[in-house]
Amino acid sequence: MTETKRPREPFAPWDRRTLPGLFDVEETAKRVGHYKWVELKLFEALGGWVATVPELDVKMRLGTHCYHHAWHADLVGKRLTEVREMKTDRLTLPANEHMVAFIDAMTEPEDAAMTIEKLVGVYRVLIPHKIAAYTYHRNATSEITDMPTVRILDFILQDEFNDWREGEMLIQSMIESEEELDRAMIHQTKLEKLMLAAGGIAGPGSIGDAYVEIPEEN
């Protein structure tokens, strides 16, 4: 017979979650607002590109992925209202002008012959940076106080990894010559420089700072 009065630790031995996290409510809301803006811009672009790409398999994948990122925008949008931001438009913003420049450059290719550029911008630049930022956030924020954000980001990351893989495979299947490879690399480099200037999708600090400050020796 179980001894019902016997006390147990509220956090089981294997539950190592601690307080506090790195982000307070305000910082979470600010980052989530940037995420929403990026997801919005991404799903709009993917949807717009469907009509412009002649490759049937790419068309269908873009249509499917369009929904994934729209759903992400919706999920994070709902989270915004839960972190004291009822007017979600107020925080649905680019991290800075460099992110605006990045999205403009990413969405510029339109011609039917530029499928490689369109895919590279999303699957070799933007999505890897999103994966980085979301991973940092879900690891850094409190798994006790901010678990709803962690859960949302975990769902989103599942899509991001799958979409990244599908996109990467499409790119690899399309690059058949050195000329096409050059096109991919040139466009990737151009966009990576813009992302570098932006500091990541949430601006500087998107993935924290991995460097250590060493005090100057006197």
Binding site: L40, F43, E44, G47, V50, L56, K59, M60, R61, G63, T64, C66, Y67, H69, A70, W71, A73, D74, G77
Partner: peptide, 20 residues
Amino acid sequence: PLELKLDMARQCWDEARHCE
């Protein structure tokens, strides 16, 4: 409104499946 675009994105997914 954003919600209209979200509906259109959902339709994108549906139509992509219909293509498949």
